[in-house]
Design a binder for these strands. Structure first.
Lengths: 69, 69
DNA sequence: TTTAAAGGTAAAGTATACTTTACGTACATG
DNA sequence: CATGTACGTAAAGTATACTTTACCTTTAAA
């Protein structure tokens, strides 16, 4: 799954550090998400979407053909 | 987080069993989701939404005030 | 040329999503 | 009554999301 998190975050002029605190996750979580190390939980995806005033689908791009559960 | 999975599945006249096979998860996973035992991964949420031709937000209802990560 | 700010990442631990196996219950139909 | 279908659920194991701690690199400025 791809995501536009880093892109959107930079557009809003906010640091990983700050976003992490707002979303109540660690900075490493934000970094890992932006660099595609793993996918967010659906709760975190909702928090992110809500914070940026976007839908989950606008930020996280599911193309199918994914194996993980 | 609440969801309308059971409701939507019944509308479509499909069994837990069948949905599980289509989504490539176990029947227990479907049952657990419908009964609010836990939340889906975002990948599974996308698969479900795509299968029902709906958005994640139409099926899974995030109200905020949730603690889990 | 040090110092700090911003971000990448690794290791080890915890929480939770999901699996397999298995059994229980309710309901329908023979 | 007996058998099958649909669903709930429990226990134990695996995979992955996320944490804490910590260190490293790059860039920019004093």
């Amino acid at each position: 799954m791809k995501n536009r998190l880093g892109e959107i975050r930079k557009e809003r002029g906010i640091k990983q550090d700050e976003l992490a605190e707002i979303l109540e996750v660690s900075r490493q979580t934000i970094s890992s998400l932006e660099n595609g190390k793993y996918n967010p939980s659906i709760l975190l995806a909702f928090k992110i979407a809500r914070y940026f005033n976007m839908s989950i689908e606008e930020i996280f791009i599911y193309e199918g053909e994914e194996n993980g559960k």
